[in-house]
């Protein structure tokens, strides 16, 4: 992939042709024409987000259109996804968290499909961009914070007041708790985008090495191994994002430690 793009104009300068452009895959470019990227421009990001939406519709709507008592292949996957997220919300956030299950399901389905679609060669990984993950994480953060204050009012602040700790320690703990609370969206978003970006960039670096005949078999093996790892990461990061959302939701619903 990397070698293709460098073929034309990367020849000048380097003699061996060993040029790495691991970050080129993350460039956002318009799908039609060569103009700039405006707010409403249809870009490759638009395309791959739309594909994720179509995949969600395909799995969750078309896959279940049979409404079989004995599910088919696609329907059982859809039911598996439903049961997986539902159980996660119920177990982590509690019975009263089930009300917010559609929101969490939306996040999970989008992230998991964006991650897996990004693994298709030449694809654009929408979730590798901070712009995307920060919006997701901020949405969770704002939703959870507002929900906490709406549900408990000022008592929501008890989340930062560790009643079980010795009185002398409580103010210090409160400062730490507040800091950790506001760091949540940062870690929440960077974890997802960072994992995907790093994995995809490493695959590109290995692909760059494939240009040298002597190491290309090792390079291909390494790409294969990384790809397997990336499949794992694609699911695990979606899972981690979702379960952390459930944990934050639990804090908003039950702020007492």
């Amino acid at each position: 992939m990397a070698t293709e793009t460098q073929g034309g104009d990367a020849a000048h300068g380097e003699g061996g042709g060993l040029v790495f452009h691991p970050m080129d895959q993350f460039i956002v470019k318009p799908l039609f024409g060569d103009g700039g990227v405006g707010l409403f421009t249809v870009t490759n990001a638009t395309l791959w987000m739309a594909l994720a939406v179509l995949c969600v519709i395909g799995l969750m709507v078309l896959g279940t259109s049979g409404r079989g008592i004995v599910p088919g292949r696609v329907q059982s996957v859809a039911e598996l996804a439903y049961g997986f997220v539902y159980k996660m919300v119920e177990d982590v956030s509690g019975r009263d968290g089930v009300k917010y299950f559609p929101y969490i399901m939306t996040l999970f389905m989008f992230i998991v499909f964006a991650n897996f679609l990004g693994l298709i060669p030449m694809a654009f990984t929408t979730t590798s961009h901070f712009a995307v993950t920060v919006v997701l994480a901020l949405a969770v953060f704002l939703f959870v914070t507002i929900l906490g204050f709406v549900k408990h009012g000022a008592k929501f602040l008890e989340l930062f007041w560790v009643a079980s700790a010795p009185l002398a320690l409580r103010p210090i703990l409160a400062i730490i708790e507040v800091i950790s609370y506001f760091v949540r969206p940062v870690s929440h978003s960077i974890r997802l985008a960072g994992n995907l970006m790093a994995g995809h960039a490493v695959i590109k670096v290995f692909a760059g090495f494939a240009a040298i005949a002597a190491v290309s078999p090792i390079s291909v093996l390494a790409i294969t191994a990384m790809y397997g790892l990336e499949i794992l990461v694609a699911f695990i990061q979606a899972y981690v994002f979702t379960i952390l959302t459930c944990v934050y939701l639990k804090d908003a619903l039950h702020p007492h430690h």
């Binding site: 990001a45 969600v56 995307v132």
Partner: peptide
């Protein structure tokens, strides 16, 4: 590129 991605992301999320 941020604005564009945010716009389409919100659209995608709302659709899903």
């Amino acid at each position: 590129w941020v604005g564009n991605q945010v716009f389409w992301l919100i659209l995608a999320l709302v659709a899903i």
